[in-house]
């Protein structure tokens, strides 16, 4: 499922990618659906693509400036931690593997 901007790097753009392992595809898909509805602002100089392959959530950023990229990645990690904590506290099973990323 990992597609998107992998092969067509736009000229002058900064690219950043992150892979997050989950215990199973079930948790990875929950995280995907929780984290994808809020899009990056249009004309904000940044785009973000989320996808799931197996039990891995992959995120790819493409940004005009490092400053904008840092803000987006940092806030994504805050949100990801919150999703994982929520799964740990209110989900049916323990997510020890995923907890390592936070």
């Amino acid at each position: 499922m990992a597609t998107g901007g992998d092969s067509n790097l736009e000229a002058g753009k900064l690219e950043f990618s992150l892979d997050v392992p989950f215990p199973s595809s079930h948790e990875a898909l929950i995280a995907l659906r929780s984290l994808s509805p809020d899009q990056e602002p249009r004309r904000g100089g940044i785009s973000k693509q989320l996808s799931v392959s197996g039990s891995t959530l992959s995120v790819r950023w493409s940004a005009d400036e490092a400053r904008i990229l840092r803000v987006s990645v940092s806030s994504f990690l805050d949100h990801l931690s919150l999703v994982i904590e929520t799964m740990e506290m209110f989900g049916p099973s323990l997510l020890c593997d995923a907890a390592q990323v936070c």
């Binding site: 659906r33 929780s34 809020d38 929520t86 209110f90």
Partner: peptide, 18 residues
């Protein structure tokens, strides 16, 4: 925006978990 997103993320996650 930022506080709204925080709360929405937890709501989406528990809705799916449950």
């Amino acid at each position: 925006g930022a506080p709204l997103v925080t709360v929405a993320i937890v709501a989406r996650t528990v809705a799916q978990l449950w």
